[in-house]
Nucleic acid binder design. Structure first.
Lengths: 129, 129
DNA sequence: CTCAAAATAATAATGATTACTATTATTAGT
DNA sequence: ACTAATAATAGTAATCATTATTATTTTGAG
């Protein structure tokens, strides 16, 4: 894997913007620094960085994938009102692995949990109606 | 909501084929009985039936949604080798809800867990190499 | 410096799903 | 049963996120 300015800058963008950006958001942020960068490059590098263990790719059911620079075991909650993504510290892997093994002889390699609901801020806002 | 032959038959197809079919699989199965049915009708009715609580829609990260007629709380494991979907009896909701509430004041409405790994059958097959 | 390998920008293609539209089926009220 | 309002349909086009293609440019080892 060769060094490229683009990849380094993309990693920096994800690390500095802890907003769980989508590929498209990263693309928008990147164009401020490198106006000629292409969307394909952003996608390719986000995937490469994720494979390489530098960032995490968060698959979002019925939505764009998101990218996260926090690498500790945690899952994600998405507010269905404002769309913001929150981290929730939990390790489902250690929860699921023994269950899957015991009940189905299933050798778990990864799992993905997405939680939907209303965040505190939006719940507060809704009170005023 | 009016009665339609198509919707009734689609529900029957999902209920009888406990293979967690995708919309496209349902479409293929349906065309054997109703050759002129359209893919749009299949999608619309699967979504209607899911909203109505007759079936469950299982969002699959980076893949087609799947539909399930088993309505008890359970999650899904997908074999990355053969693609088969397995049910795993667990109620993450009751697991996640208190945690999300306590840590973030987040009001959870739903959550979706997908587990990836190798199923027993495929693991057995791989041994022979 | 040179040159092969890798990465890029730009664009086209893909796959899943939804939207649109003219036509047909269903059903409530006569 | 008849009819009008309305919901559902088939067929098609459009959308969205993502990946593939390709000709050109960058990178880094020798």
């Amino acid at each position: 894997m060769k060094y490229s300015k683009q990849r380094a800058e993309i990693l920096k963008t994800v690390t500095e913007n802890r907003i769980h950006p989508t590929a498209d958001t990263v693309y928008t942020l990147m164009r401020e620094k490198m106006p000629d960068i292409s969307l394909g490059t952003v996608y390719r590098n986000l995937n490469l960085l994720a494979e390489n263990g530098d960032i995490r790719k968060i698959p979002v059911p019925n939505g764009s994938d998101r990218f996260d620079s926090r690498m500790n075991p945690h899952e994600h909650m998405i507010c269905t009102e404002c769309g913001e993504v929150f981290d929730i510290d939990m390790d489902i892997m250690s929860n699921v692995k023994p269950l899957a093994d015991r009940e189905h002889n299933f050798d778990v390699s990864s799992c993905s949990l997405t939680v939907y609901g209303i965040c505190a801020k939006c719940a507060e806002k809704n009170k005023n109606y």
